[in-house]
Amino acid sequence: MRIVEAYIGEYASGKSEVAVNRAVFLAREKRKITIVDLDLVEPCYTLRRLKKLLNEQGIEVIAWETEELLGLGETGALLHPSMRWALQKSGDIILDIGYGVYGAKVLNLLEGAASDPDLRIYAVINLGRSMTSTKEEVLEYLRTLGRVDGLINNSHLGEQTSKNFLEQASEIMEEVSEIVAIPIIATTVTEEMAAYLSKSYTHPIWPLQRYMHNSFW
């Protein structure tokens, strides 16, 4: 079964980190995998710097090279043709819908997005983010997103992550999942956080390695 996943979410919720980890995981399973950088606001700052590292792991990366861009600054971004036609590629596809403001609307720019039977849109949620820190805020936020097929619980507080926080976060996510009737696809966990996990989850745990700090932020 072909895997086609689009990661959307609040600004700085962890979309790119989760998308990159997912691509790495699929590559390790010997699957043919392409990751597409769909950050149309900060095109030079997300996956571009990780290209070489990801290529070495057998992952094809569709992202702008700075030499290809005209230096339009903030006046506008270009959608590379290979981004527009990305869903035509064979193998698995991970779409990192960057910057977050438009949710899944960016998918309107991709050929075949509306009809792709394998496409799943996952919302990455971090309860440590100030605008999605309570059940009500997460529910309010989800209502702005349009189509969401699954939730990713990427809750953390950076260096201040605590066991208490993780437990509360997962409880809130489970309540949210029930209310909106959208499954939690996974909870992401770094090695440091793994020590804090005491409860057993009914959904998968995805181990997370930090890649994005080798990008810009």
Binding site: A12, S133, L157
Partner: peptide
Amino acid sequence: KKAFMTGNE
């Protein structure tokens, strides 16, 4: 209130 944020926020 502890939060994980970007500087602008």
